[in-house]
């Protein structure tokens, strides 16, 4: 399928980074999720977050996921995104122990409720991963 967005190098770079992190087919899942209400948001997300930022080499993919998991936990408003990035963290080579450790550390900075909600998200993702 031809994709008009392919004209942009940022978009292509972002899509590659996105799928390396979230798995093949992630772009199709995003397109399907937002096609009806805001198709352009996918291009913004992929070009900026993944094309500009995630594609940068200074942090290893696993370390970037640790930073993202910490930030999403502290925000406390991004439970679905937190679950996606915990999943991506496992795929990037983080262990469950490492993920749980960063979630527990957030209790100090963002409060116990934020950390407990983060741990609940991790529990769900770990249970799904165990099912395969």
């Amino acid at each position: 399928m031809s994709d008009k967005r392919d004209a942009s190098e940022r978009f292509r770079r972002g899509r590659e980074a996105l799928q390396a992190i979230m798995g093949e087919g992630q772009i199709d899942r995003l397109d399907a999720a937002y096609a009806e209400v805001a198709p352009d948001i996918v291009e913004f997300l992929v070009s900026f977050a993944f094309g500009d930022l995630y594609a940068r080499p200074a942090l290893k993919p696993r370390d970037r996921q640790l930073a993202t998991i910490a930030a999403l936990t502290a925000l406390g408003t991004a439970q679905p995104q937190l679950r996606s990035h915990i999943k991506a963290g496992l795929a990037a080579g983080l262990t469950r122990e490492e993920i749980v450790e960063v979630l527990m550390q957030m209790a100090v900075y963002a409060g116990f409720p934020a950390a407990l909600n983060g741990l609940a998200a991790a529990k769900e993702v770990f249970a799904e991963a165990a099912k395969g």
Partner: peptide, 8 residues
């Protein structure tokens, strides 16, 4: 501090 975090 427990519920909102130490920085708050």
């Amino acid at each position: 501090a427990i519920y909102c975090g130490v920085p708050a």
